[in-house]
Simulated scan of single mutants.
Amino acid sequence: MGVLPGNRVVFDRPGGLRPPVGFVRNFAQPEAVLLRSQTISWAAGLQRGRGVSRTSFATLAFFDAPPGLRRTESAVEGGTMTIEAKKYDDLVGNLEGFSPKQIEQHIKLYQGYVKKINEIRAEMEKIPFGERKDKANFSFGKYSELKRRESVPYNGTYLHEMYFDNLGGSRAKPKADLTRAIEGAFGSQSNWEEDLRACAETATGGWVLLTYDRIDEKLHHNQVWEHSNGIMLNQEHLLALDTWEHAFMIDFGTDKKSYLTAFLANVNWKVVAERLDKATQRARAA
Rank of each mutant, 00 (worst) to 15 (best):
S170W: 02
H160W: 03
R13Y: 06
L178S: 03
K108E: 08
L276V: 08
V3T: 13
R197A: 06
V267E: 06
E77P: 11
G78R: 05
Y110C: 05
M162A: 11
R132F: 11
S144M: 03
V9K: 00
I107P: 10
V271G: 03
I40V: 15
G206P: 13
E125K: 11
A200D: 04
H160E: 02
E217A: 08
E84C: 08
N234E: 10
T204I: 13
A185L: 02
L46I: 15
L233V: 14
Q223M: 10
W207C: 04
G184S: 01
R70C: 01
D255M: 02
N155F: 09
P30Q: 12
A240F: 15
V76N: 01
L109F: 13
G253M: 04
N94Y: 01
L109I: 15
T254C: 02
R121D: 05
T254Y: 09
V52W: 03
Q47S: 12
A176V: 06
G187Q: 01
G187W: 02
F27Q: 13
L69A: 08
G253H: 01
P5H: 02
P67N: 06
I117N: 05
K108H: 09
L46H: 06
Y88I: 00
A265Y: 09
E194F: 10
W225T: 14
G15W: 04
H160R: 11
N118Q: 11
L210Q: 07
V24F: 03
Q281W: 00
T243I: 12
E145M: 15
M124V: 13
G205E: 01
S74D: 13
V267C: 10
R197S: 07
E84Q: 13
H106T: 15
E217W: 04
R121I: 13
A279K: 04
E236R: 10
K175D: 08
K142L: 11
I103R: 00
G79Q: 09
A198W: 02
K142F: 13
R214P: 00
Q281E: 01
T179M: 07
V272C: 06
N268S: 11
E201H: 12
G168D: 01
V76Y: 07
K86G: 12
G97W: 00
F63W: 03
A65C: 08
N229Y: 14
I231N: 10
I231V: 15
G184P: 07
V114H: 11
H220L: 04
K270C: 04
V3I: 15
K108P: 01
G169Q: 07
H221F: 15
H237T: 14
K142H: 14
K101W: 00
D165S: 14
G130R: 10
K116G: 08
L239I: 08
